[in-house]
Design a protein around this nucleic acid. Structure first.
Lengths: 161, 161
DNA sequence: TGTTATGGTCAACCTCATTGACTACTTCAC
DNA sequence: GTGAAGTAGTCAATGAGGTTGACCATAACA
């Protein structure tokens, strides 16, 4: 049974740790909800793939790899996996015979809608603890920090561990 | 080059993603500082190990494993690695001939002090963007959420990906 | 029209975790 | 006491999820 970090420690520099723990807590809540519904345990990387494909009609394995911040080989494995599970399909590219356009299947779109709902529920739990105003402030502050540090640049999507 | 998630998306449920990206951003800043100082690229798990040993004079591999939320085999590898780098040492346990008490070396204590300083610097960058008041609110809110969800229970230390 | 760049795949490997089996020692019930 | 069950730690095999490198087919360009 894992023990807790010392949350009464007044040392500065605790916020990064708190953020990691809070994020892990939220993903656990999300996956618990998925499991309650009897769904496969798809991970955040899958969700980001779905979201990218939904908002990008011309997605290919290479552009997905860039979006996820992994190599095209790694992205290719993810694509093959999700295709095998029926969440996405590959279509021939209109003008480039090498390329394949990636598209969500109806099942993929359904999953995305479900995921949106579940994440919103998890966020709501947070709002119930800290209040809606503080949640809005949190949303605003995190965006401000991320854009301030990265400016116009690309943002890595995955935590480093 | 990874692309950014759409930070203008008003959909609810974005806070978990923002948290993941913010945490990743902060760890990147931390590691950049470490690299500037020419230090080995120790990962968060190493830092949590140091912190645990510093606050726990009777730590063993098994209790460390519980703290980190991994198997004892995984903890054992981490211990061997950190011992090889001279950050910690194993001492015989006073009353249990099977067990080894883990303790930081002076080099380990030095690293911990350095890490504290660097994390505080990273946190300060966040404070410079959102202000000291908002940082304090963030600290407070994250703690409130974590303790509300986990109550007295153990908290998993690592993000799931 | 040849040279260079790009989309995608295959294969080998690395890191960091896992499960399972095992030894040595400890603890507990009787 | 002593035998049974539990615990600290290690070794070995395996798996998930990434990497690098080599390669083919097609595109883009000088």
């Amino acid at each position: 049974m894992p023990q807790s970090p010392d949350f009464t420690d007044p040392r500065p520099g605790q916020v990064p740790l708190l953020m990691a723990v809070a994020y892990r807590t939220m993903t656990d809540r999300f996956h618990a909800r998925l499991a309650d519904l009897g769904r496969e345990p798809l991970r955040p990387a899958h969700g980001y793939t779905f979201r990218y494909l939904a908002s990008n009609q011309q997605a290919t394995t290479v552009t997905l790899a860039a979006h996820l911040g992994v190599t095209k080989q790694a992205a290719s494995k993810t694509v093959a996996e999700l295709e095998g599970w029926g969440y996405l399909e590959r279509r021939p590219h209109a003008s480039d015979k090498r390329a394949q356009v990636l598209a969500l299947t109806p099942r993929g779109h359904d999953y995305l809608k479900l995921a949106d709902r579940l994440w919103a529920e998890v966020e709501k739990e947070l709002a119930e603890v800290i209040g809606a105003e503080r949640l809005a402030a949190l949303d605003h502050d995190l965006r401000a920090y991320i854009t301030a540090i990265h400016e116009d640049q690309a943002v890595p999507l995955r935590p480093v561990w």
